[in-house]
């Protein structure tokens, strides 16, 4: 990788200040950013590690909300979220592999918004609130297409507030080489309705499958999906699968998630 200046500030304020530098980038767990830099596809001149900021890690719950601090690793969520939100713990426990989960963070994953990442499906699928150093952003506004979010330059995710569903399940069908999601579907059932978020499949990144949401809201069973479909034209096509195949998987996995959450 190209050289850069490394900083590891001790507070959010110092991190925000450090990130004002031109071409500075925040470093969470680095599980996506560092390989990208090694391939010389990203060349920040300054890397600001968020790993030294106290209070940036941890999982807690308050009423019907699960709060995950922005620097919390996938391993911690997998271990600690299960009591109140097993669907999220299950999702976190299948991100990458054990070594990736030791380092990768929820804030880093959401901020990167890889179209095949798992966490965006959970955030969008629950209608989570993304809290940053300066504001709160609803998940529905946060994700703005592949690798694109509502975050400003240098804005840091400090915590994610997940409404805890009555039931939820995440079905991840692996892209077998990268082990990202070829298609991942997060289904969450709340008192006031069902949300369905799909990652890995869409040309524009994570998306809500609203037809399925309305069908499932009135009848929470896989049968309710009969007759529904997503358009193959909107799906990613690559050497691992066609758009039609991904479109099929979206429906298939949604059904399986509903079954598992029932």
């Amino acid at each position: 990788m190209y050289n850069f200046e490394f900083q590891k500030p001790g507070s959010i304020e110092d991190a925000v200040a450090a990130l004002r530098h031109e071409d500075a980038m925040p470093l969470g767990g680095g599980q996506t950013l560092l390989p990208t830099m090694k391939a010389r596809l990203a060349s920040p001149t300054r890397l600001v590690s968020l790993g030294g900021i106290p209070g940036m890690k941890g999982v807690s719950s308050s009423g019907d909300t699960l709060i995950v601090k922005g620097g919390t690793t996938h391993a911690i969520v997998a271990r600690e979220a299960g009591g109140v939100f097993p669907g999220l713990a299950q999702l976190a426990s299948h991100i990458g592999d054990a070594a990736v989960r030791s380092r990768g963070t929820i804030g880093g994953s959401l901020a990167n918004n890889d179209p095949a990442a798992c966490y965006p499906a959970a955030a969008l699928g629950t209608g989570a609130t993304i809290k940053t150093d300066r504001r709160e952003i609803a998940a529905d506004e946060f994700f703005q297409g592949m690798f694109s979010t509502a975050l400003d330059e240098g804005e840091i995710i400090t915590e994610v507030r997940f409404p805890i569903p009555q039931a939820a399940n995440y079905q991840k069908f692996l892209q077998p080489a990268s082990r990202f999601a070829m298609v991942g579907v997060f289904v969450a059932r709340f008192a006031d309705g069902v949300r369905v978020a799909v990652t890995g499949a869409g040309n524009d990144g994570v998306f809500r499958w609203s037809e399925a949401e309305s069908a499932l809201s009135s009848n929470f069973s896989a049968d309710a999906l009969a007759g529904l479909s997503v358009s193959a034209d909107d799906m990613i096509a690559d050497i691992h699968g066609s758009g039609a195949y991904r479109a099929h998987l979206v429906k298939e996995l949604t059904g399986r998630a509903v079954l598992a959450a029932s």
Partner: peptide, 23 residues
Amino acid sequence: DTSQCGACVVHVDGEPVKACTML
């Protein structure tokens, strides 16, 4: 060079880490 093969796994503070993907 993509954090996939695991030949570089070490433990950092007791947790497994891919040493090729950590500064």
